[in-house]
């Protein structure tokens, strides 16, 4: 089903990207009852653009509809998958570690849903794994929504209050602002 959609998408090249993606997300909804397929061949065209410079003048960026957008259920699924696929191992709870923070304002590869989708499916050169063969497409969208929700880019009505995994107010565990200055010898 999904592949047929893509084939359509290719044969109607003249359709605007927006229309294509409408068709594509409609297929996506249908697909949900079927066995999920790997996410290999998604083509976003200009919607996953990564440059602010467009020769000949700025064009508005086509918008890809994220099928998980604004759904509390999909976002909480995204949160679960974020641990299940070990995103949390590299990005922690969004603060980062082996990978960059995902609670951020300056995205390396863009923060639009299509950009984050691309990041997850294709990977990124400095060590972000390419998950295309591993994560079914609808789950990628759930992850996209969850990652965006960390940055308040999903409607608050759909975003759960952030769970503090260790149930304790850890603000008190932070180093005091002044810290302890390097000091003399103790014997």
């Amino acid at each position: 089903m999904y592949l047929r959609c893509l084939r359509n998408l290719h044969s109607y090249r003249l359709l605007s990207a927006g229309l294509c993606l409408l068709a594509f997300s409609a297929c996506q909804r249908e697909k949900r009852e079927l066995r999920p397929s790997p996410t290999r061949l998604v083509v976003f065209s200009d919607a996953a653009r990564q440059s602010d410079i467009q020769p000949g003048g700025r064009q508005s960026q086509p918008v890809v509809a994220n099928p998980s957008h604004g759904s509390a259920y999909e976002i909480s699924e995204g949160a679960r998958l974020y641990d299940w696929y070990n995103c949390s191992g590299c990005h922690a709870g969004g603060g980062g570690g082996m990978g960059p923070p995902l609670i951020k304002t300056d995205w390396i590869y863009g923060g639009e849903p299509a950009n984050i989708f691309d990041t997850i499916v294709k990977g990124r050169p400095n060590g972000m794994p390419a998950w295309g063969n591993r994560i079914p497409e609808y789950q990628v969208w759930q992850l996209v929504s969850y990652v965006r929700s960390l940055n308040n880019l999903e409607p608050t009505s759909a975003t759960p209050a952030r769970t503090d995994t260790i149930q304790q107010d850890t603000a008190g565990l932070r180093p005091r602002p002044t810290g302890v200055a390097s000091s003399g010898v103790t014997k």
């Binding site: 922690a92 709870g93 969004g94 603060g95 980062g96 570690g97 960059p100 923070p101 609670i103 951020k104 995994t165 850890t170 565990l173 932070r174 180093p175 602002p177 810290g179």
Partner: peptide, 22 residues
């Protein structure tokens, strides 16, 4: 070095972020 956001998430860097947020 990694530009982590440990002030928002203390589990950054396998939890070392919390101690090094400043």
């Amino acid at each position: 070095a990694g530009g982590l956001n440990a002030k928002k998430d203390g589990t950054a860097a396998l939890g070392f972020g919390n101690a090094m947020a400043d």
